[in-house]
Design a protein around this nucleic acid. Structure first.
Lengths: 209, 209
DNA sequence: AGGAAAAACGAACTATTGTTTGACGAACAA
DNA sequence: TTGTTCGTCAAACAATAGTTCGTTTTTCCT
């Protein structure tokens, strides 16, 4: 009687097993598993077998690993799905830079792929329904790129007499105005005195309860 | 002449230096730095000094570390800002489970704090303007919790004759209907034949170009 | 000035962990 | 059946990296 010492499963399946355990491990622990962790996690008994599978995963571009480095496996796909944390601005204090520490309530994670310069972004919670026509509702979060100028048609965050407001920047009858997207609100003349553009809306997030 | 071999800076400042380098390193590399990496990064020459600072950071609850484990530092604050990646469903193939592999285009990162069960979520890109009244525009992404039932008033993703659509579930004149939030679209009767609720919209994301 | 405490240093120690090697078993084709 | 290939295994090797220890330097207090 020959004793069955191991089973030789389909390689692709085993590689998948290893890959899944890596992602799972990183997700729960926050750092990469070791070769021996993968042994325990997958039931594979030899470190060299894991090693071979890791090479396959690296060669197919699914993971990144540096030779010799411990716990240095990273999921290649995460690169595209990188996340930045941008500040959520609660109140806009008068005379204080928008991103000053006292303004920042917390940080929200945002897909980095959506923006080229996430370090210049901030988020703002919408109060009121003046922008309903643009699909921006009360309670929504807008993600704003900080910049002093904007184009006509852009939805901007502006400071008017020490109050922050979100409106569409437009040109009407020869004047630059801040236009609400709701007929029951009045268009605000944008005269340079006391008016300041803080940034341009680049994204909207709404959570349904 | 006494040779100045090292300067003894304020401990808090040095701890901060170490902490910042850890976050920076993890952000760029995807895995934790080693004690010796931190030496190079901070200019501190002794591994034991770094070790002492790491203990301080752990004791003050700012980082997590397990004794003996290599490259296993994690930033404690990241815990609260955890991100889940939920599948972006491109097409909805007839007769195939919504989360089947062939439906999934890619994955989007979403703040885990927003949902209790991110593993049951999927995302869908909106085509058309039938939900303008609810602030859901063409090109928006909706984040959907997968469930077979829903309440009246919920915005649902439903399958009607093998086509996925996003509408408000409502009751009108004694019948259950799928109601568009746009007067130029017709209300769709929700008869059980060929009609299926795939999930309920929990979030909306819009990126302004 | 003298001494204690705190912080940094350098070197040695330890062990976790990546890597290599050679052998064995299973699957498959000739 | 027989040989080849490939996946797995066990064990040993090598080295990266966590930890400890005793000393030196700086700061601060008396």
């Amino acid at each position: 009687m020959t004793k069955r010492k191991f089973t030789k499963a389909n390689v692709d399946d085993t590689v998948e097993l290893v890959y899944n355990y890596i992602t799972e491990y990183i997700k729960t622990n926050g750092f990469s598993p070791t070769v021996r962790d993968l042994c325990k996690g997958t039931g594979i008994r030899s470190t060299s077998t894991i090693h071979a599978h890791l090479k396959r995963l690296r060669d197919s571009g699914r993971i990144d690993m540096e030779a010799g480095k411990r716990r240095a496996l990273t999921i290649a796909a995460f690169e595209q799905q990188k996340v930045d944390h941008i500040p959520l601005v609660g109140r806009v204090a008068a005379g204080v830079p928008i991103l000053a520490e006292e303004n920042i309530d917390s940080y929200l994670p945002v897909p980095a792929a959506f923006y080229t310069e996430p370090e210049h972004m901030f988020a703002l919670e919408i109060t009121g329904d003046s922008m309903i026509g643009a699909g921006i509702l009360n309670g929504d979060y807008v993600f704003v790129k900080k910049q002093a100028g904007a184009d006509y048609g852009d939805i901007v965050v502006a400071l008017i007499d020490d109050e922050a407001t979100v409106k569409t920047l437009a040109r009407e009858q020869g004047r630059t105005v801040l236009k609400p997207e709701n007929p029951s609100y009045k268009t605000i003349p944008f005269d340079q005195e006391g008016c300041l553009i803080l940034g341009v809306v680049r994204g909207v997030w709404r959570a349904h309860v």
